[in-house]
Amino acid sequence: MGRLGWQLAELLYPAGVARALEHAWFRPPHGNGPDGAGRELLDRARADWALVTGQGASRRVRVYRWGNTGPTVLLAHGWGGHAAQWQPLVAPLLAAGMRVVAFDALSHGGSDAGARGAGQTSVVEMSHSLLATAWHAGPIHAVIAHSLGSAALALAVREGLHLQAAVMIGPPADMHTAASALAWRLGIGPGVLARMQRNSERWLGMPWSAFNVPAIGRARPVPPTLVIHDRQDKEVGWESGAAIAGAWPGAQLMATDGLGHRRVLHDAQVIARAVSFIHGAANAPGLAEATRRMQAQADA
């Protein structure tokens, strides 16, 4: 449906347009699966399952692990992503002495469908997937997240996930702002958007204001964080990353140019900076010994 079609439908049937917008907003894209290098990466992993409980039957999250020693780094993909997209980053992290864990969020990749079926999910379920993986494969030293995975990470931190470091790549700052941008592109007015927001809050179990990532950094302790965002990112504006870096105490901002929203994951300088940031946190005074104690307790 084009912009004019959405506008006409809004005039005739605003409740139906609100439901259609809700369905479109919470439908993850199902693009291409892992490429050859990504599939090879997953084939080399130790694969098992983490469980997400609540909202009915338990649901399985596919978990992949590489490496046997060192602090554990958890990789969280974005909306419509999958664990194999981290192929450029796994080897550098292993070379830096880290264990690496990645997962497919519910309704993504090889994981089970979420509570509303394979065609609908949310950042809340992505955060539950992250927390389930962290509990299953922990203790977790750091998380590197891309796009909406960064918002899922922020929700997990608000829920009590303790980390020594975090890296957010192309993170969205606020769900309402992003949804408003979609509504504007479609020609949908604020009244229908507000109706869609109220409808979704009933099953999300929380208000949309809870998804404001900068506000989380102002409200509770957050880990040392590196935010990486490209100035030409057309999917998530660079201003979002800058807002998060400005609000999270002590956060650092790395701005890139010309890498967009996805190619940034393959850039050698981005990878080096992310690994260096995580490695530096792992080798902070006293932290290495604390990490070893945590791992010994987990293995006992």
Rank of each mutant, 00 (worst) to 15 (best):
H30S: 13
P190T: 00
W238K: 11
V270S: 04
L11F: 12
D112F: 06
A281L: 01
P221F: 12
K234S: 14
G241A: 05
G191D: 11
W184T: 15
Q120T: 15
A91K: 11
V90N: 04
R19T: 08
W238V: 15
V236N: 00
A268H: 10
A181R: 14
A137L: 03
A290F: 07
P172R: 10
M126C: 05
P172L: 12
D48W: 13
A181V: 11
A243R: 01
A179R: 13
T72M: 01
G119S: 08
F103D: 01
R60A: 12
M196A: 12
A173Q: 01
L41W: 07
V124S: 13
R39D: 11
G70F: 00
R46H: 11
G241S: 05
S209Y: 09
I244R: 00
G260M: 02
L89D: 02
S200F: 01
G119K: 12
R198W: 12
A272Q: 10
R44H: 08
L12H: 13
M126Y: 10
L259V: 08
I278Y: 01
R292N: 12
H77Q: 01
G160P: 06
L41F: 09
R3C: 09
L182M: 11
M196F: 00
R262Q: 10
A284D: 06
L193R: 02
W25V: 14
G109A: 07
R39S: 13
V192D: 03
P249I: 02
P71W: 01
Q164W: 15
A132H: 00
W203Y: 11
R292W: 06
Q120G: 12
R99A: 06
A194L: 08
W208V: 01
L265H: 00
H82C: 02
G109H: 08
A145C: 10
V213A: 08
L163V: 06
E22K: 10
L161C: 04
A105G: 14
W25Q: 11
G78S: 07
G114K: 03
Y13P: 07
M294A: 15
L226I: 00
E10H: 11
P29E: 07
T53F: 08
L155W: 12
L4G: 10
A290R: 12
G2I: 08
H77M: 00
A96E: 03
S122P: 05
L93V: 05
P224S: 03
N199V: 13
A24P: 04
V157A: 10
G67K: 00
L163Q: 06
S240A: 14
D35I: 11
Q7M: 15
Q7E: 15
G189A: 04
D299P: 04
W25G: 07
R39E: 14
P223Y: 03
A83R: 12
S122L: 05
A166T: 08
L163D: 01
L253V: 03
A245F: 01
S147Y: 08
